[in-house]
Design a protein around this nucleic acid. Sequence first.
DNA 1: TTGGTTTACGAAAACGTGGTAGTGTTGAAA
DNA 2: TTTCAACACTACCACGTTTTCGTAAACCAA
Lengths: 343, 343
Amino acid sequence: MKRKITLKQIAKELDVSISTVSKSLRNSLEIGEETRLKVQAFAKFYNYKPNNIALSLKNRKTKSIGIIIPEIVHYFFSTVINGIEQVANEHGYSVVICLSDDSFDKEVLNMEMLANGSIDGFIMSLSKETQYKGDFHHITEVINQGMPVVMFDRVTNDILCDKVIIDDKAAAYEAVQSLINNGRKKIALVTTVDYVSVGKLRTDGYEKALLDNGIPFNEDLIIKIEDVDTCEITISELLHARAFDAVFAVNELFAVTIIKTASKMGLKVPEDLAVIAFTDGIISKYSTPSITTVSQSGEKMGNKAAKMLIERLEAEHDDDEDENENYTTEVIETHLIKRESTD
Amino acid sequence: MKRKITLKQIAKELDVSISTVSKSLRNSLEIGEETRLKVQAFAKFYNYKPNNIALSLKNRKTKSIGIIIPEIVHYFFSTVINGIEQVANEHGYSVVICLSDDSFDKEVLNMEMLANGSIDGFIMSLSKETQYKGDFHHITEVINQGMPVVMFDRVTNDILCDKVIIDDKAAAYEAVQSLINNGRKKIALVTTVDYVSVGKLRTDGYEKALLDNGIPFNEDLIIKIEDVDTCEITISELLHARAFDAVFAVNELFAVTIIKTASKMGLKVPEDLAVIAFTDGIISKYSTPSITTVSQSGEKMGNKAAKMLIERLEAEHDDDEDENENYTTEVIETHLIKRESTD
DNA sequence: TTGGTTTACGAAAACGTGGTAGTGTTGAAA
DNA sequence: TTTCAACACTACCACGTTTTCGTAAACCAA
C-alpha cells in the first residue's frame, strides 16, 4: 500500500527542489535536459499525478459541477444527467449529484454543502416543495457569491440565471390540438398540483387549445393528482361516468395508469379513449398499447445546460470584474411522437 | 458579487490573528469570551463557512465517494445510486458520478480522474468491455494506493475487495423452478453475451433448475442477444417454430419485447407463453400484462455498498498501518414478484 | 521584587501545487 | 579584469484551514 507520490517526495528522492520537479514535469525550459528527463522518468515510474485537491485550492477551480435534482429514479432526470455528463466529460469536468427528494430542506442543505468550494457551478431543477414555498434565497445566495447557476425544466422567474426549458405551453397545445384533430371533444387533463411550474404551463396550453377550437373549458375535466397511488381510483370514477373520450396526461406514469384502468373496464384504447402523455420515456414505448407522447429530450436539455454553465465558467476567467450578466433562456424543441394510444 | 469570506479576511477585519478566528469559531476555551463572541457574530453576519477544498487538503479526506457505473438511464443503476446517496448523505458524504458507457477506456479515465484526490473511495459496477477484456489494472492500482473500492452487481473474482451482489444463480434457479412448477417444460433463456458476469451466473442457475427437474438442457433454447434491437427478430423466429412455452429473460427489456412480439403473433401471455424477467423495474410493473420478475433491490444494494465503504473509510482513520483487509461479499436477498405474465 | 501560573492570543507549519522572483555559477564579450 | 548574459536551479508566496507551540501580559503567592 504505497500512498500516491507527491512533488515533495520526488524532490527529496532526487535531491532537487520541489520547483525543479514541478517545472521539469511541465517541460519548462528553465530546467536542464538531464535533470528534466531524470525527473520525468522518475515521476512516470511512480505514476505521479498532480493532486486535484491541491490544484483546486490553488486555482480556485474544482473542475466539477453540481447537479441538484428532485429524484434520480426517474427517466427524464436520468436522461438529463446523461446529457450533462457527456458535455462535462468532454470538457474535463466531473459531476457531483445531490438529490433533493423534492424536499426544500434537503435542497438547501445540499446546495450549501456544495457551495463551500466543492464545485464551480450548479445545474438544477427545483424541488416541488421549493416551488410551493417560493423561497429561493439559497439560490440567490450562491449566485451572489459569483457561482453560476443553470436551471432546467422546473425553473422560476424569480431567479435571474441561465435556464433550459421546453415550451411546455406550446407542446401541450400541440398535443391537445392533435386530439381535437382526431375528432375528440371531451378531453380530460390529468395533471399534478398547481405549484409545479411545468404543470401550470401545460394546463395553460391545454386550455388555450380547447378555447381556440371553440370547445368549452370544463373544470371538471381537470384532474389534479398529488400521488400516483390515488390516480387509479379517481380515474376509474370518471371513466365510469364516460365523462371524456380523450386524456392528456402530464406524465407517462399517469398515462399508463389511465390506460390500464380503462382496459380493466373494458374500454378500448384508442377507440374509446385516446391518450397522450407528456415526457417521452421508457414506459410509453413499452406500454401496451404504446403511448403517444410529447418528446422532451432530457439529453438535449442536459447537453445545453452543461454547455451554458461551462461557457460561463470559462468566460469568468477573463472578465473578472465585468458584471455583464446577459442571462439567456434556451428553449429545447419538442415534438409529438405518435404511437398506438391515439388514432 | 461578494466572494465567500475566509478566515484571513475575518482576521484582518477584526484585527486578530487567523488562529484566533479559527479557534473562536470552534469554541476553543483558549480564546476569551469577548473576542470569541465578537468573532462568531462577525462570522455569522458574513455567513462564513469553511472552505471544503482547504479542509480536504488538510484532512486528506474529501468526504465524497465516487460512483462508476456503465449507464445511468437504467432503472436498476439509478436505484442503486439512490440507495448510495441516501446513506452517503446521512454520513455527510457527497457522491460524484461517472459513467463508463460500458467502455473500458472511459472507465479507466474516470477512475484515474477521481483517484487523484477527488474522492475517498469508489463504488462501482464493471463495464461490459472491462469484463470482456478482463483487465482490472486500474482497479488494482487505486486499491494499492490505499483507496477502498466496493464493487456491486457486475463484479469480478480477480479483484479482492468488498462486494455487494445478489445470488444470481439461485435467483435464476428459483425463477425457472417456478415456471417448471407451473407445468412448463420447454423453457427458453434469453440472455446477454457470456462475458457479462451476471449473465453467466443466471445461465448456470437456469441450467441447474432444468437438470434438477430432469429436463434436458437444450442449447437451441438459449438465445444470446447483444443488442436489444435485434431481439425482436430472433424472438419471433423462435416463436413461430413454437419451440418453447416459457421464457426466462435476464432483463425486463428483453421480456417486454418478447411479450410484445408474442402478442403481435396472436399468442396469449401467459397461456401460450409464460414470461419471467430478472430485475424488477418500472417496465415490468407497467407492462401489459405486467411481468413476473426476480426483484433485485438496487436500493438495498446501494445502501449496503455505501455502508461498507463508509465503514472502511472511517475505520482507516484508526489503524493507519494495520493492513488486515478482511474483505467481505454481501449477498442481497431476492424474491420472485408474481404478476400477470405467469400463471 | 521574584518566581511561577494562568489567561489570551499569535506565529508558523502542514496539506500539495505552481508561478514569480531571485541566486549563484559559468563563460564570454568589452 | 570587469560586466553581462545565459543557464540551472532554489526560495518564497499563495490558496484556506487546523493545530501545535510559543510568549507576552496579568495575576498571585512568597
